[in-house]
Design a protein around this nucleic acid. Structure first.
Lengths: 130, 130
DNA sequence: GGAAGTACGCACAAATTTGTTAGTATGTAG
DNA sequence: CTACATACTAACAAATTTGTGCGTACTTCC
């Protein structure tokens, strides 16, 4: 994705609504970009996962936060929850079609950050050295 | 960006580090995706802005949060701050090269959300009607 | 001569997010 | 027979984020 693409998007039809405090897209954006939402999307981008599996994969989430995050993402239609009625419980989480689209953007951002990390850190060093 | 691209990114070299709780990319990700960071990046994507101008553009930010957000983004090397030594103060904020790259991803995500909003909301309606 | 605009920093308060602990039902391994 | 794993939830506590109001130094507009 290039700068020009961003520019075009920005000047398009209904864009810029998020900048309005009461646009519903704010909530969606929030679910996708809050502390755990992003990481859960990244984790799920590789395929379905069970609850405990996700918890181990996403370093630092508590069970509470994970289930809350999953619930939000499910309510937005990004995640599909499938509970098998067995004991002990067995629940699978996977991205929906919409979720896979969203995840692509999130993964792209995260991927870019990780790639740019050396440059970003180098910049910080340079500033710190002044 | 397609699902396959995301998939490829995900399986690449150093990817997946964000999932580790102590990866420094977590902090960067946070600055780019916390409540105001995303919106400020979107706002700045169209060009340089002054402080008060940004405040008006990004609906709902307080002065405190805006200056804090800008400080974080500046420290990461995404935003360039230029203060003209006049009175009353005049300060310009604009994206750096790195910032423009990052903004492209953020704008893409936000743009997608706004475009997908009808579908997302429709999904919520459907669930609520059950 | 008073008000407003500028780009903030600071102290304190409120709101929101996050974590912690305990508890559920039951099969399976030791 | 006991502990552990599973996928959670509720209640409560702690931490973090966010907001509010005030002050600043000076100029321009009424």
């Amino acid at each position: 994705m290039t700068g020009e693409t961003a520019q075009r998007l920005l000047e398009g039809w209904q864009l810029g609504n998020v900048l309005a405090a009461d646009c519903p897209s704010r909530a969606i954006l929030n679910h996708l970009t809050n502390r755990w939402g992003t990481l859960v999307m990244v984790a799920l981008a590789t395929g379905p996962h069970r609850f405990a599996e996700l918890r181990r994969k996403v370093g630092g989430v508590s069970e509470r936060m994970l289930s809350q995050t999953l619930k939000d993402l499910e309510a937005d239609g990004f995640v599909l929850r499938t509970a098998h009625p067995v004991v002990p419980p067995h629940v699978d989480y996977e991205l929906t079609g919409l979720g896979r689209e969203a995840a692509a953007y999130v993964v792209a951002l995260v991927g870019w950050i990780e790639g740019a990390l050396p440059e970003i850190m180098a910049g910080k060093m340079r500033v710190a050295a002044e």
